[in-house]
Each structure stands twice: as structure tokens, then as C-alpha cells.
Simulated assay, not measured.
Amino acid sequence: MRHIVAVQAVVTADEIDREPTAAELDAIDREMPVIRAEVELLDAQIIALDRTPTELDARRIRRAHRRVLAARRALANRTAGASLPGGAA
């Protein structure tokens, strides 16, 4: 007796279907302070959208913007320090 079997292509996971790698999760963890600061800035901007911004709204947006810049600077400094062997500039 001869068995008839369907020929199937090798099934591989698409780029969309796969789980993040450990390196990708580490990169997200390193960028999390920047992400949080950007979300806070976005929240402050959304609050001021539907009304005339008050002085308090303007201060909140400025503070959130400074936090974003500080978080980006800290991330850039960590990244630059990590990529140079021996910490030499």
C-alpha cells in the first residue's frame, strides 16, 4: 500500500509572529525612562489641546519637555559609554 501525503513547505514564523529576543527586551528596558518621559509630555500636551493653555499647562509642558531631553541625554551618555572599550573617548 502506498501512502499519499501532502507536500508542505517548511513552516517558519514570520517576523511579526515571533517573540522579542533578550537583546530587544534589554534595549526596551534601557529606553524605558525616555519612553515614560515622552508619554508624560504627550499627556501634558493632550490636556492643553481642548482649552486655552494656562500658565500651569505651559509649565507642565516645559517640565515634561525638559524631562524628555534629560532622559535622552542620559540614554545617549550610557550608550556612548558602553560602546567605547575601556571608557576612553
Score class of each variant (00 low, 15 high):
58 A>M: 14
41 L>G: 04
34 V>S: 00
72 R>N: 08
49 L>E: 13
32 M>I: 05
82 A>N: 06
51 R>D: 04
31 E>G: 11
84 L>K: 13
44 A>Y: 05
47 I>W: 06
40 E>N: 11
16 I>H: 13
87 G>P: 05
57 D>N: 08
21 T>I: 06
13 A>Y: 04
42 L>F: 04
66 R>A: 13
49 L>M: 13
2 R>N: 14
5 V>H: 14
44 A>P: 00
27 A>R: 11
19 E>V: 10
29 D>H: 08
71 A>Y: 02
34 V>H: 00
72 R>F: 00
57 D>K: 03
87 G>H: 06
35 I>R: 15
52 T>I: 13
39 V>T: 10
58 A>P: 01
41 L>H: 00
52 T>L: 11
52 T>K: 09
61 I>R: 08
86 G>D: 07
83 S>N: 02
32 M>N: 02
33 P>V: 05
29 D>T: 10
28 I>Y: 08
25 L>I: 09
28 I>W: 05
72 R>P: 02
47 I>V: 15
11 V>W: 08
17 D>F: 04
44 A>M: 04
86 G>E: 03
59 R>F: 07
56 L>R: 14
17 D>G: 15
57 D>V: 02
77 N>A: 12
25 L>F: 05
66 R>P: 00
66 R>N: 10
59 R>K: 12
8 Q>F: 02
54 T>F: 00
14 D>L: 12
48 A>F: 02
39 V>N: 06
78 R>I: 12
56 L>F: 07
32 M>R: 14
80 A>K: 00
70 A>M: 04
53 P>V: 04
12 T>V: 12
36 R>F: 07
78 R>F: 08
65 H>Y: 07
15 E>N: 12
79 T>I: 02
43 D>M: 08
12 T>F: 02
1 M>Q: 11
58 A>F: 07
55 E>C: 01
73 R>I: 01
40 E>T: 07
48 A>P: 01
78 R>P: 00
84 L>A: 13
32 M>P: 02
49 L>D: 11
48 A>T: 03
71 A>L: 03
35 I>E: 01
41 L>T: 04
39 V>A: 14
44 A>N: 06
60 R>Y: 01
5 V>L: 12
21 T>P: 06
13 A>R: 15
37 A>P: 04
88 A>L: 15
75 L>S: 09
86 G>I: 05
36 R>S: 10
26 D>H: 08
37 A>Q: 05
40 E>I: 06
56 L>C: 03
62 R>M: 03
25 L>Q: 14
27 A>F: 04
74 A>F: 07
52 T>M: 11
54 T>N: 02
